[in-house]
Simulated assay, not measured.
Amino acid sequence: MNPPVVTLRAMRQDEYEDYRAGRDLEYVQSLAKTMPADAAMEKARQDRARFLPRGLATEHQRLLVAESATGQVVGFAWVGLEEPRSGTTDTAWLHDLKVEEPFRRSGYGRAILAAVEAVAREAGAARLGLNVFGANAPAIKLYQTCGYEVTAQQMAKRL
């Protein structure tokens, strides 16, 4: 079977509002596994204010919609064209990659990731970094099979 083809395009404002609401909810749910819910909501708010202070117009951030060969929206990606801690542009940062539910497990994640890598390369990045929650086994497997390596790791145990 041939891998699916995707095209990335800039996210529109109406798409951004829906994307942001859904991403915030998923982010808070993931954070709430390791911190109180109110702290998770506050961290999500602070992170959005830090990384997307101007929404779609935030400099060095690309919010992208992935479309199939038939023009159907199959997913989304948010890539920063600078490393978030240092601000250097030799490393781009994948803040989010989402494949819509009906298209999961059919190669779209890999296709979107490859397209994002091309965006990062075209912007001059030599590396693409990302964080992934430890419980997100499907994402971890995707990144590993695409050549990503662990560069840092946090661990915890519930007491």
Score class of each variant (00 low, 15 high):
2 N>G: 01
3 P>A: 02
11 M>S: 03
12 R>K: 07
13 Q>S: 06
15 E>F: 08
16 Y>H: 04
16 Y>E: 05
19 Y>L: 02
19 Y>K: 03
23 R>Y: 01
26 E>T: 00
26 E>R: 01
26 E>L: 00
28 V>P: 00
30 S>T: 03
31 L>A: 01
32 A>Q: 02
33 K>M: 00
35 M>I: 03
36 P>Y: 01
40 A>G: 04
43 K>C: 02
43 K>R: 11
45 R>N: 01
46 Q>N: 08
46 Q>Y: 07
47 D>F: 06
47 D>R: 13
48 R>K: 04
49 A>Y: 11
50 R>E: 14
51 F>E: 13
52 L>C: 06
52 L>A: 08
55 G>C: 05
63 L>F: 06
63 L>Q: 07
66 A>C: 11
71 G>F: 13
73 V>M: 14
81 L>Q: 09
81 L>N: 10
81 L>T: 07
90 D>E: 14
90 D>Q: 14
94 L>Y: 05
95 H>S: 04
99 V>Q: 07
101 E>I: 08
101 E>S: 08
102 P>R: 13
102 P>Y: 15
105 R>I: 10
105 R>H: 15
105 R>S: 12
112 I>P: 14
114 A>W: 13
114 A>L: 11
115 A>F: 14
118 A>I: 11
119 V>D: 11
120 A>R: 07
120 A>K: 11
122 E>D: 13
125 A>K: 13
126 A>D: 15
128 L>N: 09
131 N>G: 05
133 F>E: 03
134 G>S: 10
135 A>F: 15
141 K>G: 09
144 Q>D: 11
144 Q>H: 14
145 T>H: 10
145 T>I: 04
145 T>E: 08
146 C>K: 10
146 C>E: 12
147 G>R: 12
148 Y>A: 07
149 E>M: 11
153 Q>N: 04
157 K>M: 01
157 K>G: 02
158 R>I: 00
159 L>I: 01
